[in-house]
């Protein structure tokens, strides 16, 4: 099975980081995967998106044009990518930042007030991981086992103190 995931939002929301977590989780599970960031002159504040493909077979194109799973963390991204989602696909919306609902009826939509939850839990930069927690729970794109290992891998050596809080953010998303 192949799952094509597109994560989109503003630069600085940890869009690429969220993708990296999924990619590393996939690596630990021995799956085929690719992670492809948008890149551009805006380092912060511009739009950012990242394509993650997880598969049990070798991956063809790493560019996700029609995602199975769309994760959006701002309105422009929902406007831009809503119609690209495959029929039967799933859209995850950060409802504290996006004040409209998904218009399409042939997809499943989940609304998570991730940014609000992050603020309430003293983890204002981890709305991305709350979203990912929810994605993993609802779509099973990766297993919920061994989350710690994958978090360890993406949290850099000098930020080891952030491991616990990342795991907590994933948990909040899973349980929402």
């Amino acid at each position: 099975m192949t799952t094509e995931i597109l994560i989109a939002g503003f630069g600085g929301q940890g869009i690429l980081f969220a993708g990296k977590f999924l990619a590393n989780k996939g690596l630990f599970e021995g799956r085929s995967l690719s992670w492809l960031p948008s890149y551009g002159p805006e380092m912060r504040g511009g739009t950012a998106n990242c394509s993650v493909v997880l598969s049990d077979e070798p991956i063809g194109s790493p560019i996700v044009t029609n995602p199975d799973v769309l994760v959006v963390m701002n309105l422009p991204s929902l406007d831009k990518y809503e119609n690209a989602v495959k029929p039967g696909g799933t859209i995850f919306v950060d409802s504290s930042l996006i004040k409209r609902e998904v218009k399409r009826e042939d997809v499943t939509a989940y609304y998570i007030p991730a940014t609000r939850l992050a603020n309430e839990n003293n983890m204002p930069t981890l709305a991305n991981m709350i979203m990912i927690g929810k994605v993993i729970k609802e779509c099973g794109v990766v297993s919920t086992d061994g989350m710690e290992e994958a978090v360890n891998k993406i949290v850099s050596a000098r930020h080891q103190n952030l491991k616990e809080i990342n795991l907590k953010a994933l948990k909040i998303g899973e349980e929402y």
């Binding site: 690719s34 492809l36 890149y39 790493p62």
Partner: peptide
């Protein structure tokens, strides 16, 4: 693309 992407 190949330069920027990550794969195992």
């Amino acid at each position: 693309t190949i330069g920027q992407m990550m794969e195992p």
